[in-house]
């Protein structure tokens, strides 16, 4: 089975059920697929069967959206156990989660909600990561979020916060370049400040996606992380700079709304690959 750690220019797509027959019929020029863990925590049926078929031909990334790593109180032990079982069954290349919270008081909000970047959050996130990594028996990749508000309580930059989490827990990072761009615009700061503050060696995977543009109360651009459009040119430019800085990293195109034909997504992934190859050529020239 493909080990992506030896293939840094690997490219992948989020797996969409409507693309499964095409993917299994004539495997595209892709190295890996990513799925949301929560869509596969079911007893049986087509989802798991399709995932087994895809897994038999491609490397896999399992991406959690419900552990609520940034949330208050203890992690949902039942959910964590199910995630650990899924990871054991499918042996993905990575299991990743978000620097965010999504549950409170037993209710699940189905959104990636922001946390203040302060010492209390740092301790909570690290303790949750320790617990999850112990149970899943591997380092988790933690993803930087898209955020729409800041907090008076924050005392750390997002990049410094993530770097400290990596240092304390040994987790890896999933760098979402689209999220870095969105948060940069939404908070009037340079996204490069975030990316350059992250420990390069910890970044194991990169996400690219599209956003929608709205306006805030003052008429300033407010970018919304929809995963509903092609990757924006500004994000490609930031990705190119990121790859020049980091070297190639396995890169995934995420698309969850307005799903286009598979070939359109494959073309976006191929563009990421060619940017990575350009960087290698430049490096060795």
């Amino acid at each position: 089975m493909t080990d992506l750690t030896t293939r840094p220019t690997a490219i992948g797509l989020g797996l969409k059920p409507e693309h499964v027959p095409e993917i299994l019929g004539a495997p595209a020029a892709l190295d890996f697929f990513e799925v949301h863990a929560e869509n596969y925590l079911v007893a049986g049926g087509p989802n798991l069967r399709h995932l087994e078929a895809v897994r038999s031909r491609f490397a896999l990334s399992i991406h959690g959206v419900g552990l609520s790593i940034g949330g208050p109180g203890p992690l949902d032990q039942d959910h964590l156990t199910r995630i650990a079982d899924l990871v054991r069954r499918f042996e993905p290349q990575w299991f990743s989660e978000h620097l965010a919270w999504s549950s409170h008081g037993g209710a699940f909000f189905n959104d990636l909600l922001p946390i203040p970047y302060d010492t209390a959050s740092l301790e909570r996130v690290c303790s949750h990561l320790h617990q999850a990594q112990e149970q899943i028996r591997r380092p988790i990749l933690l993803e930087n979020p898209s955020t729409y508000v800041g907090f008076a309580a924050s005392t750390l930059d997002e990049g410094d916060f993530l770097a400290e989490v990596v240092r304390r827990t040994g987790c890896g990072l999933l760098l979402d370049v689209n999220n870095a761009y969105i948060s940069g615009v939404n908070h009037g700061r340079d996204p490069w400040a975030l990316i350059s503050a992250l420990p390069a060696d910890a970044i194991a995977e990169i996400h690219l996606a599209g956003f929608a543009e709205d306006r805030d109360g003052a008429g300033a651009p407010l970018l919304i992380d929809t995963h509903g459009a092609a990757v924006a040119e500004a994000v490609w430019a930031l990705y190119r700079r990121t790859i020049s800085h980091l070297g190639p990293r396995p890169t995934l195109i995420e698309r969850d709304q307005c799903i286009p034909p598979l070939e359109a997504l494959v073309a976006e992934a191929a563009r990421a690959r060619s940017i990575m190859r350009d960087s290698i050529v430049r490096e060795t020239a």
């Binding site: 729409y148 508000v149 800041g150 109360g217 003052a218 300033a220 407010l222």
Partner: peptide, 24 residues
């Protein structure tokens, strides 16, 4: 405790989260 870089109304931005929860 919400802040915005340009001192715009944080309520407008908080509504993005409200909307995401309900719409999703």
């Amino acid at each position: 405790g919400l802040t915005t870089w340009n001192d715009s109304d944080p309520g407008v931005r908080f509504d993005v989260y409200r909307n995401n929860v309900v719409v999703s």
